[in-house]
Design a protein around this nucleic acid. Sequence first.
DNA 1: TCCGGATATGTTAGCGCTGTCATAACAGGT
DNA 2: ACCTGTTATGACAGCGCTAACATATCCGGA
Lengths: 348, 348
Amino acid sequence: MSFSNNEKKTISTSPPEQVQGDVTLDIVARIAGVSAITVSRAINKPEKVAPKTREKVKQAIARTGYVPNLLAGGLASRSSKLIAAIIPSIANLVYAETISLFSNRFREAGYQVILGDSGYPEVLEEELVRAILTRRPDGILLTGVDHSPVCKNLLLSAHIPVVETWDLTPSPLDIVVGFDHVKIGRQVAEFIIEKGYNKAGFVSADDSRALTRQRSTQETLIKNGITNIITASVPVPSSMELGRLGTRQLLEKGFTGGAIFCSSDTLAQGVLAELQSRNIAVPEKVGIIGFGDQVFAAFTHPALTTVRIDRKRIGREAVDALLARITDQPVKSNIIDVGFEIIRRQTM
Amino acid sequence: MSFSNNEKKTISTSPPEQVQGDVTLDIVARIAGVSAITVSRAINKPEKVAPKTREKVKQAIARTGYVPNLLAGGLASRSSKLIAAIIPSIANLVYAETISLFSNRFREAGYQVILGDSGYPEVLEEELVRAILTRRPDGILLTGVDHSPVCKNLLLSAHIPVVETWDLTPSPLDIVVGFDHVKIGRQVAEFIIEKGYNKAGFVSADDSRALTRQRSTQETLIKNGITNIITASVPVPSSMELGRLGTRQLLEKGFTGGAIFCSSDTLAQGVLAELQSRNIAVPEKVGIIGFGDQVFAAFTHPALTTVRIDRKRIGREAVDALLARITDQPVKSNIIDVGFEIIRRQTM
DNA sequence: TCCGGATATGTTAGCGCTGTCATAACAGGT
DNA sequence: ACCTGTTATGACAGCGCTAACATATCCGGA
């Protein structure tokens, strides 16, 4: 055995950068010549610490390369500064836009967002929620308003604010920010009629909200005498490929022209490509209306007519509501309808 | 003051669901008639607990609705079971696919992934890394190989495995999984030549990796006598709109036909739409080659020729490498090249 | 000069869990 | 019956931080 080791670990304060093992508050405190709690305050409540002291602490932190441990901090303060967001799929831009705004806003407010990808089956929402509650988030965003009783129970007994999104319900768990799928369906039907189509087709993803819209459109259409309706259902997640596939299904089932309502812009883009490849005139022979007004919708050729949802507003309202709840401020309303708008472009 | 309150909080074990305040390990332990550590073991190392005891604990957990607190667990065990992933943008499908696979795999392994959205400026990578290290992740995924010295230091002194992705470097911080942008540029140039184009254009996002590819293609082209080259640069994030804009720029700068290499499929799709709206024949007059082989690329009309990157493989290799490091297993190699492939379809 | 009240800093205990070691319970061989 | 080796459980301390309270320090006014 070598005797050349030092017996004690010496903490040399002179070299500007020196990281050995884990730097803790105590070490920083010792170097700054103050107590641990003062360092804690200098970081979290700087206004409670004298400028001189603050400066000493700042230097000690820089010298040691201290990075606070929020596992410990969260445990002690009973606030993790974490917000959970559960969405059906990260790989779906429609949700990504909402979430992107959501996390940026929260970051500015000193929170981090942890994402849960429920996958479309949604069977495992409960499992996901349980896993995420394990991190003791200070708030949680959910997509949709349908949750198993066990899941609701979990959420409720976590005693944290909950925002449900992308849908509306008269009885939210806590707060809901969304829009009315039935109303959308109705207005799309009226728009189809206004445009003079007397036949209709649907290319819808196998998703409860999409199906709600389709059903509503269908009913309104029938009520108005348009009964020549053909439907195609495709699995989630949506893609151009499935849009093309759905179109072929429609054609095989005898679709001979009319309006096609797609449950997403992505599907609509596929429908458009398939029709173009068959030289079917859009919108003369077949009209297309999408859903979402995604960034590309205005730039397809021809440009896509669609239903605009203000996805960023959903994110914004969700942040505001959650933040209000967290800071015990009153929320204006616990049911927020962000509405929608039919954007008339060239495909219908 | 009312005297009707009970003096002691009574924990009634009879009602199946009863959650008051926070249920802790101790409470579960008391109800199960064992010690706290046994409950902990029943959850984390069930094989170390007798089946009978395990069952008692399971029931106590169900009765109380206990949800473990991983802030405390992580602090005590010095393992957060968190993996951090830093990507330029959640709202970019190209990264989302890698990340989606990445998080699913990690979930199966008992880890959760926390996402950091660095935004394209990348100036704040350092700040982001610092914020994320605060959670004491067990591993971290980075996008790109360029990091500030301070950032590298932070990462290194965190003593956790690091995977850099989407690029290659001979000297990774720890592990790198990516591909060679210079080689891609070269092969695209050769492909353009093979296809017989004698003029070229570029629509590239203002992104270092995209620019590396462009430069490489350009050089190879020039070396082969193709000097009629026009370039258009668009900001990030890419979109169809910017693809159309870039095309207009090219045209204004005197582009009169030839091959266009786009830094992403999304841009390429915009280029295609713009050309179609001007009745310029693709690929006869203008050839288009994209980058990424995103899901829609095969389904545009005409179908998009592009460079395929196996994004899922990047995710897979990143998980494998990280997991190996975490469990102290050897990694096959700390530099993993996932390669690429030119996919010949209709636009070029 | 002294004192009240603000401001700044420190002491203590404990957040909820797990690592470590000690002890108890049990089976099997002699 | 005894001992040995295994398996199952428990006691205790401590992870790194902050809430709550306690104490020290400072300032201006009587």
